[in-house]
Protein backbone atom coordinates (compact mmCIF):
# COMPACT_ATOMS: atom_id res chain seq x y z
CA UNK A 1 0.00 0.00 0.00
CA UNK A 2 1.24 3.45 -0.81
CA UNK A 3 1.11 5.87 2.09
CA UNK A 4 -0.84 8.85 0.84
CA UNK A 5 1.01 11.35 3.01
CA UNK A 6 4.56 10.18 2.35
CA UNK A 7 6.58 11.84 -0.36
CA UNK A 8 9.86 10.64 -1.80
CA UNK A 9 12.29 8.78 0.42
CA UNK A 10 11.43 9.89 3.91
CA UNK A 11 9.29 13.01 4.02
CA UNK A 12 5.73 13.38 5.27
CA UNK A 13 3.49 16.15 3.98
CA UNK A 14 0.72 16.86 6.46
CA UNK A 15 -2.76 17.31 5.10
CA UNK A 16 -3.91 19.25 8.12
CA UNK A 17 -0.63 20.31 9.68
CA UNK A 18 -1.12 21.26 13.31
CA UNK A 19 -0.89 24.85 14.51
CA UNK A 20 1.82 25.79 16.99
CA UNK A 21 -0.42 27.74 19.33
CA UNK A 22 2.08 28.49 22.11
CA UNK A 23 5.63 28.02 23.27
CA UNK A 24 7.28 28.25 26.68
CA UNK A 25 10.93 28.27 27.69
CA UNK A 26 12.82 28.02 30.98
CA UNK A 27 16.54 28.76 30.73
CA UNK A 28 19.48 28.24 33.06
CA UNK A 29 21.50 31.17 34.45
CA UNK A 30 24.23 30.99 31.82
CA UNK A 31 21.77 30.87 28.93
CA UNK A 32 20.09 33.83 30.59
CA UNK A 33 23.27 35.85 30.04
CA UNK A 34 23.44 34.94 26.38
CA UNK A 35 22.21 36.86 23.36
CA UNK A 36 18.76 35.23 23.36
CA UNK A 37 17.97 36.03 27.02
CA UNK A 38 15.08 38.32 26.09
CA UNK A 39 13.25 35.46 24.35
CA UNK A 40 13.09 33.17 27.40
CA UNK A 41 10.03 33.17 29.63
CA UNK A 42 11.86 32.24 32.84
CA UNK A 43 15.55 32.39 33.69
CA UNK A 44 16.76 30.39 36.70
CA UNK A 45 18.93 32.27 39.20
CA UNK A 46 21.14 29.27 39.94
CA UNK A 47 21.61 25.76 38.60
CA UNK A 48 19.76 24.11 41.53
CA UNK A 49 16.73 26.41 41.63
CA UNK A 50 15.99 25.29 45.19
CA UNK A 51 16.05 21.56 44.48
CA UNK A 52 18.18 18.94 46.25
CA UNK A 53 19.77 17.57 43.10
CA UNK A 54 20.33 18.75 39.54
CA UNK A 55 18.26 15.85 38.22
CA UNK A 56 15.31 17.14 40.22
CA UNK A 57 15.91 20.66 38.88
CA UNK A 58 15.90 19.43 35.29
CA UNK A 59 12.68 17.50 35.76
CA UNK A 60 11.03 20.47 37.46
CA UNK A 61 12.04 22.78 34.61
CA UNK A 62 10.54 20.38 32.12
CA UNK A 63 7.35 19.99 34.13
CA UNK A 64 6.94 23.77 34.40
CA UNK A 65 7.59 24.21 30.68
CA UNK A 66 4.79 21.69 30.00
CA UNK A 67 2.33 23.31 32.40
CA UNK A 68 3.03 26.88 31.31
CA UNK A 69 2.72 26.17 27.59
CA UNK A 70 -0.82 24.93 28.22
CA UNK A 71 -1.68 27.92 30.42
CA UNK A 72 -0.40 30.29 27.75
CA UNK A 73 -2.71 28.75 25.17
CA UNK A 74 -5.56 29.34 27.59
CA UNK A 75 -6.81 25.76 27.56
CA UNK A 76 -7.20 23.17 30.30
CA UNK A 77 -4.60 20.50 30.91
CA UNK A 78 -7.39 17.92 30.65
CA UNK A 79 -7.92 18.75 27.02
CA UNK A 80 -4.36 17.77 26.13
CA UNK A 81 -4.21 14.32 24.54
CA UNK A 82 -0.51 13.50 24.73
CA UNK A 83 2.77 14.68 26.12
CA UNK A 84 5.76 13.87 23.93
CA UNK A 85 9.06 14.55 25.63
CA UNK A 86 12.68 13.52 25.69
CA UNK A 87 15.94 14.33 27.45
CA UNK A 88 19.50 13.10 27.77
CA UNK A 89 19.53 11.24 31.06
CA UNK A 90 19.52 7.46 31.36
CA UNK A 91 16.03 6.07 30.79
CA UNK A 92 14.90 9.67 30.05
CA UNK A 93 14.10 10.18 33.73
CA UNK A 94 13.60 13.94 33.47
CA UNK A 95 10.71 13.41 31.06
CA UNK A 96 9.29 10.43 32.93
CA UNK A 97 9.29 12.25 36.25
CA UNK A 98 7.86 15.44 34.75
CA UNK A 99 5.05 13.47 33.09
CA UNK A 100 4.39 11.70 36.39
CA UNK A 101 3.46 15.06 37.90
CA UNK A 102 1.09 16.00 35.10
CA UNK A 103 -0.95 12.88 34.48
CA UNK A 104 -1.58 13.32 30.75
CA UNK A 105 -0.92 10.27 28.50
CA UNK A 106 2.80 10.30 27.81
CA UNK A 107 5.05 9.04 25.06
CA UNK A 108 8.73 9.21 26.02
CA UNK A 109 11.07 9.83 23.11
CA UNK A 110 14.79 9.47 22.81
CA UNK A 111 16.52 11.28 19.99
CA UNK A 112 19.34 12.70 22.10
CA UNK A 113 19.65 16.39 21.20
CA UNK A 114 17.19 15.96 18.31
CA UNK A 115 14.37 15.24 20.78
CA UNK A 116 12.64 18.61 20.29
CA UNK A 117 12.39 18.19 16.51
CA UNK A 118 11.46 14.53 16.93
CA UNK A 119 8.66 15.36 19.37
CA UNK A 120 7.30 18.01 17.00
CA UNK A 121 7.41 15.57 14.06
CA UNK A 122 5.68 12.76 15.94
CA UNK A 123 3.21 15.17 17.57
CA UNK A 124 2.23 16.49 14.15
CA UNK A 125 1.68 12.95 12.90
CA UNK A 126 -0.59 12.21 15.86
CA UNK A 127 -2.71 15.27 15.18
CA UNK A 128 -2.75 14.97 11.39
CA UNK A 129 -3.63 11.30 11.76
CA UNK A 130 -6.60 12.21 13.89
CA UNK A 131 -5.32 10.54 17.04
CA UNK A 132 -5.60 13.65 19.15
CA UNK A 133 -6.18 17.35 18.97
CA UNK A 134 -3.69 18.83 21.45
CA UNK A 135 -0.13 17.61 21.98
CA UNK A 136 2.62 19.01 24.19
CA UNK A 137 6.10 18.62 22.62
CA UNK A 138 8.97 19.13 25.06
CA UNK A 139 12.64 18.54 25.64
CA UNK A 140 15.14 19.45 28.33
CA UNK A 141 18.76 19.19 29.31
CA UNK A 142 20.84 20.38 32.24
CA UNK A 143 24.54 21.14 31.98
CA UNK A 144 25.48 19.47 35.25
CA UNK A 145 23.38 16.30 34.89
CA UNK A 146 24.58 15.73 31.33
CA UNK A 147 28.24 16.43 32.11
CA UNK A 148 28.31 13.96 34.98
CA UNK A 149 26.62 11.28 32.89
CA UNK A 150 28.52 11.71 29.63
CA UNK A 151 31.84 13.20 30.67
CA UNK A 152 33.36 14.03 34.04
CA UNK A 153 32.05 15.14 37.43
CA UNK A 154 31.55 18.90 37.33
CA UNK A 155 34.09 19.66 40.05
CA UNK A 156 36.78 17.58 38.41
CA UNK A 157 39.40 19.73 36.79
CA UNK A 158 39.82 19.27 33.06
CA UNK A 159 40.66 21.36 30.04
CA UNK A 160 37.85 21.10 27.49
CA UNK A 161 38.74 20.63 23.85
CA UNK A 162 38.50 23.77 21.71
CA UNK A 163 35.85 22.08 19.55
CA UNK A 164 33.78 20.87 22.52
CA UNK A 165 30.27 22.19 23.06
CA UNK A 166 28.59 23.29 26.28
CA UNK A 167 25.45 21.41 27.32
CA UNK A 168 22.62 23.90 27.71
CA UNK A 169 20.53 24.11 30.88
CA UNK A 170 16.97 24.65 29.81
CA UNK A 171 13.60 23.24 28.90
CA UNK A 172 11.23 24.22 26.13
CA UNK A 173 7.72 23.22 25.11
CA UNK A 174 5.41 23.94 22.23
CA UNK A 175 1.72 23.12 22.11
CA UNK A 176 0.43 21.65 18.86
CA UNK A 177 -3.26 21.93 18.10
CA UNK A 178 -5.59 20.84 15.31
CA UNK A 179 -7.30 24.22 15.40
CA UNK A 180 -6.13 27.78 15.70
CA UNK A 181 -4.27 30.36 13.70
CA UNK A 182 -0.67 31.16 12.94
CA UNK A 183 2.27 28.94 12.06
CA UNK A 184 1.71 25.29 11.16
CA UNK A 185 3.96 22.28 10.92
CA UNK A 186 3.64 21.45 7.23
CA UNK A 187 6.13 18.66 6.60
CA UNK A 188 8.44 16.38 8.55
CA UNK A 189 11.48 14.45 7.40
CA UNK A 190 12.40 11.62 9.74
CA UNK A 191 16.13 11.07 9.69
CA UNK A 192 18.05 7.86 9.41
CA UNK A 193 21.02 6.96 11.56
CA UNK A 194 24.26 7.96 9.86
CA UNK A 195 27.73 7.20 11.15
CA UNK A 196 30.82 8.61 9.51
CA UNK A 197 33.21 7.05 11.99
CA UNK A 198 33.85 9.93 14.42
CA UNK A 199 34.98 8.53 17.78
CA UNK A 200 35.81 11.72 19.69
CA UNK A 201 32.91 12.33 22.08
CA UNK A 202 34.03 15.93 22.47
CA UNK A 203 33.50 16.57 18.78
CA UNK A 204 29.72 16.17 18.60
CA UNK A 205 29.34 18.67 15.79
CA UNK A 206 31.60 16.61 13.55
CA UNK A 207 29.77 13.40 14.50
CA UNK A 208 26.35 14.89 13.67
CA UNK A 209 26.98 17.00 10.55
CA UNK A 210 26.73 14.08 8.03
CA UNK A 211 23.38 12.95 9.48
CA UNK A 212 22.01 16.49 9.21
CA UNK A 213 23.33 16.86 5.67
CA UNK A 214 21.64 13.57 4.75
CA UNK A 215 18.29 14.68 6.19
CA UNK A 216 18.46 18.13 4.56
CA UNK A 217 19.33 16.67 1.14
CA UNK A 218 16.54 14.12 1.37
CA UNK A 219 14.07 16.74 2.55
CA UNK A 220 14.88 19.06 -0.34
CA UNK A 221 14.87 16.25 -2.92
CA UNK A 222 11.66 14.69 -1.62
CA UNK A 223 9.83 18.00 -1.85
CA UNK A 224 11.75 19.25 -4.90
CA UNK A 225 12.65 22.40 -3.02
CA UNK A 226 15.75 24.59 -2.99
CA UNK A 227 17.20 25.96 0.27
CA UNK A 228 16.02 29.45 -0.68
CA UNK A 229 12.43 28.23 -0.27
CA UNK A 230 12.98 28.85 3.44
CA UNK A 231 13.65 32.12 5.26
CA UNK A 232 15.63 30.22 7.83
CA UNK A 233 17.18 26.74 7.90
CA UNK A 234 18.20 26.15 11.47
CA UNK A 235 20.01 23.07 12.76
CA UNK A 236 19.69 21.82 16.34
CA UNK A 237 23.07 21.95 17.96
CA UNK A 238 25.92 21.37 15.55
CA UNK A 239 27.94 24.18 17.11
CA UNK A 240 30.42 26.25 15.14
CA UNK A 241 32.56 23.28 14.03
CA UNK A 242 29.58 21.16 12.99
CA UNK A 243 27.92 24.03 11.13
CA UNK A 244 31.08 24.65 9.09
CA UNK A 245 31.28 20.93 8.28
CA UNK A 246 27.59 20.83 7.33
CA UNK A 247 28.03 23.71 4.91
CA UNK A 248 31.06 22.00 3.36
CA UNK A 249 29.16 18.72 2.99
CA UNK A 250 26.14 20.43 1.43
CA UNK A 251 28.26 22.43 -1.01
CA UNK A 252 30.03 19.25 -2.05
CA UNK A 253 26.63 17.70 -2.72
CA UNK A 254 25.57 20.65 -4.90
CA UNK A 255 23.13 22.17 -2.43
CA UNK A 256 23.01 25.94 -2.79
CA UNK A 257 23.86 27.18 0.68
CA UNK A 258 22.87 30.79 1.24
CA UNK A 259 23.08 32.88 4.39
CA UNK A 260 19.72 31.59 5.61
CA UNK A 261 21.55 28.77 7.46
CA UNK A 262 22.06 29.00 11.21
CA UNK A 263 22.47 26.75 14.22
CA UNK A 264 20.82 26.87 17.65
CA UNK A 265 24.12 25.94 19.34
CA UNK A 266 25.82 28.90 17.68
CA UNK A 267 22.96 31.29 18.45
CA UNK A 268 22.46 30.58 22.15
CA UNK A 269 25.78 31.86 23.57
CA UNK A 270 28.02 34.77 22.73
CA UNK A 271 31.75 34.33 22.23
CA UNK A 272 32.67 35.92 25.58
CA UNK A 273 30.92 33.07 27.37
CA UNK A 274 33.85 30.83 26.42
CA UNK A 275 31.83 27.74 25.58
CA UNK A 276 34.31 26.93 22.79
CA UNK A 277 32.14 25.59 19.91
CA UNK A 278 28.72 26.69 21.25
CA UNK A 279 25.77 24.98 22.91
CA UNK A 280 24.41 21.44 22.76
CA UNK A 281 21.88 19.24 24.54
CA UNK A 282 18.15 18.72 24.06
CA UNK A 283 17.53 21.99 25.88
CA UNK A 284 19.55 23.94 23.31
CA UNK A 285 17.23 23.53 20.34
CA UNK A 286 14.20 23.40 22.67
CA UNK A 287 15.04 26.86 24.05
CA UNK A 288 15.95 28.42 20.72
CA UNK A 289 13.00 26.87 18.84
CA UNK A 290 10.25 27.35 21.43
CA UNK A 291 11.68 30.73 22.44
CA UNK A 292 13.54 32.89 19.94
CA UNK A 293 12.49 31.33 16.61
CA UNK A 294 8.84 30.86 17.53
CA UNK A 295 8.64 34.49 18.68
CA UNK A 296 10.18 35.67 15.43
CA UNK A 297 7.64 33.58 13.50
CA UNK A 298 4.75 34.99 15.56
CA UNK A 299 6.06 38.48 14.85
CA UNK A 300 6.09 37.75 11.15
CA UNK A 301 9.87 37.95 10.75
CA UNK A 302 10.10 34.42 9.40
CA UNK A 303 7.39 32.85 7.28
CA UNK A 304 9.03 29.56 6.32
CA UNK A 305 11.44 27.83 8.68
CA UNK A 306 13.10 24.44 8.38
CA UNK A 307 14.17 23.17 11.81
CA UNK A 308 16.48 20.15 11.87
CA UNK A 309 17.17 18.65 15.28
CA UNK A 310 20.52 16.89 15.52
CA UNK A 311 21.27 14.06 17.89
CA UNK A 312 24.28 11.87 18.51
CA UNK A 313 23.14 8.45 19.58
CA UNK A 314 26.10 7.10 21.53
CA UNK A 315 26.30 6.27 25.23
CA UNK A 316 29.22 6.56 27.66
CA UNK A 317 29.48 2.74 27.55
CA UNK A 318 29.61 2.59 23.76
CA UNK A 319 32.34 5.23 23.66
CA UNK A 320 34.43 3.45 26.28
CA UNK A 321 34.12 0.29 24.18
CA UNK A 322 35.56 2.21 21.25
CA UNK A 323 32.38 2.43 19.17
CA UNK A 324 31.99 5.24 16.68
CA UNK A 325 29.24 7.84 17.20
CA UNK A 326 26.03 7.30 15.22
CA UNK A 327 23.94 10.40 14.66
CA UNK A 328 20.51 11.42 13.44
CA UNK A 329 18.71 14.49 12.16
CA UNK A 330 14.95 15.05 12.16
CA UNK A 331 13.46 17.95 10.23
CA UNK A 332 10.16 19.78 10.53
CA UNK A 333 9.09 22.68 8.36
CA UNK A 334 7.06 25.43 9.95
CA UNK A 335 5.14 27.75 7.68
CA UNK A 336 2.77 30.63 8.25
Amino acid sequence: MVSPKKVGNQTIVFENGPFIISGHTIAGPMEGQGPLAASFDTILKDTYDGEMSWEKTESKMLENAMREVVKKADILLDSVDYILAGDLLNQIISSNFAARQIGVPFIGLYGACSSMALSMAVGSMLIDGGFGSKVICSASSHHETAERQYRLPTEQGNQRAMYAQWTVTGAGSVLLSDSGTGPRVTTATIGRVIDYGETDVNNMGAAMAPAIADTIINHLNDLKRQPDYYDLIVTGDLGSVGLQLLVKLLVKNNVKVADNFNDCGVMIYNTEQDTHAGGSGCGCSALVMAGHILKEIYQGKFKKVLFIGSGSLHSPTSSLQGETIPAIGHAVSIEV
Binding site: A161, M162, Y163, G197, N203, P210, D214, V241, L249, N253
Partner: peptide, 22 residues
Amino acid sequence: PTLNVTPEEYKKMTAQISPRPT
Protein backbone atom coordinates in the same frame (compact mmCIF):
# COMPACT_ATOMS: atom_id res chain seq x y z
CA PRO B 1 21.40 9.68 -2.39
CA THR B 2 23.99 9.32 0.30
CA LEU B 3 26.56 12.03 0.67
CA ASN B 4 29.23 11.94 -1.98
CA VAL B 5 31.92 12.18 0.68
CA THR B 6 33.74 9.12 1.99
CA PRO B 7 34.40 8.69 5.72
CA GLU B 8 38.12 9.06 4.97
CA GLU B 9 37.56 12.39 3.22
CA TYR B 10 35.27 13.45 6.04
CA LYS B 11 37.92 12.64 8.61
CA LYS B 12 40.30 15.01 6.81
CA MET B 13 37.65 17.73 6.64
CA THR B 14 37.00 17.35 10.38
CA ALA B 15 40.68 17.54 11.27
CA GLN B 16 41.03 20.65 9.13
CA ILE B 17 38.11 22.50 10.70
CA SER B 18 38.29 21.44 14.35
CA PRO B 19 40.32 24.03 16.26
CA ARG B 20 43.42 22.77 18.07
CA PRO B 21 44.44 23.55 21.65
CA THR B 22 46.55 26.66 22.11
